[in-house]
Lab assay of single mutants.
Amino acid sequence: MTTFKLIINGKTLKGEITIEAVDAAEAEKIFKQYANDNGIDGEWTYDDATKTFTVTE
């Protein structure tokens, strides 16, 4: 398992979430479901060097 981080730069929600996932594809699926569940819709980026996803509304 690898640790992945999501940085949320939303209009109403900001913060960071860290999860353990098998790979970046699994982490992205989990993070996008979390964002969808919380009404966050924005532009996604991923930095493989730091294993960090960012979503900006």
Rank of each mutant, 00 (worst) to 15 (best):
A21I: 10
T18K: 11
G10R: 07
G42R: 00
E43W: 02
A21Q: 09
E16Y: 02
K5E: 10
I7N: 12
K14F: 06
F31N: 01
T2M: 05
I8Y: 15
E28S: 12
T56F: 08
I19A: 05
N9L: 13
V55R: 00
A49S: 03
I30C: 03
F4A: 01
T56G: 04
V55D: 02
K51D: 03
I17G: 03
V22R: 07
E43D: 15
W44H: 04
I7V: 12
T18W: 10
T52E: 14
D48I: 04
D41W: 03
K32F: 07
E16T: 11
F53R: 00
D41Y: 02
T12M: 13
E20W: 10
F53Y: 14
Q33K: 12
T52G: 10
L6I: 02
I7F: 07
K14A: 09
I40P: 02
T52L: 12
A25I: 15
T50R: 06
T54K: 10
E26Y: 13
K5N: 10
L13N: 08
D23S: 10
I8G: 06
V55L: 02
G10K: 10
L6H: 01
E57G: 01
N36S: 02
D47Q: 12
F31K: 00
I19F: 05
I8V: 14
M1L: 14
Y46V: 15
I19W: 15
T18H: 08
F53M: 11
E57L: 05
G15M: 04
K29Q: 10
D47R: 11
I30A: 06
M1T: 04
Y34Q: 07
I40W: 15
V55K: 01
I19Q: 02
G10M: 14
E28F: 12
Y46W: 05
T18Q: 08
A27Y: 00
D37K: 11
D41N: 07
F31T: 05
G15Q: 13
V55I: 05
T18C: 02
G39R: 12
N38M: 08
Y34K: 08
G15L: 11
Q33A: 09
K14N: 15
T52A: 10
W44F: 09
E26P: 14
T18F: 10
A27W: 00
N38G: 11
M1Y: 15
I17V: 05
L13W: 06
F53T: 09
D41L: 05
Q33H: 08
I8W: 07
A24N: 07
E43H: 09
E20C: 02
N38A: 09
T18M: 11
A35P: 01
E20I: 14
Y34D: 08
T3V: 15
E43F: 06
I40S: 03
D37I: 14
F53E: 00
T3L: 08
T50M: 07
I8F: 10
E20M: 04
D47N: 11
E26T: 06
E20K: 06
K51F: 10
Y34R: 03
I17F: 05
I17D: 09
N9I: 10
F4M: 02
D47H: 08
K32Q: 11
I30S: 14
K51E: 13
L6D: 00
W44I: 04
K29C: 02
A24P: 14
T56V: 06
A21M: 15
A27C: 01
N9Y: 07
K5D: 14
T52R: 15
G10D: 06
D47E: 14
A24F: 09
T50K: 08
T12S: 13
F4R: 00
W44T: 02
I8P: 00
I8R: 00
A24D: 14
T45A: 11
L6T: 02
T50D: 06
I30E: 14
T52I: 06
A27I: 02
D37N: 08
K11F: 13
T54R: 10
N9G: 01
G39I: 14
A35G: 09
T12E: 13
K51C: 01
D41T: 07
T12F: 09
I7P: 00
K11P: 13
D37W: 06
G42A: 01
L6G: 15
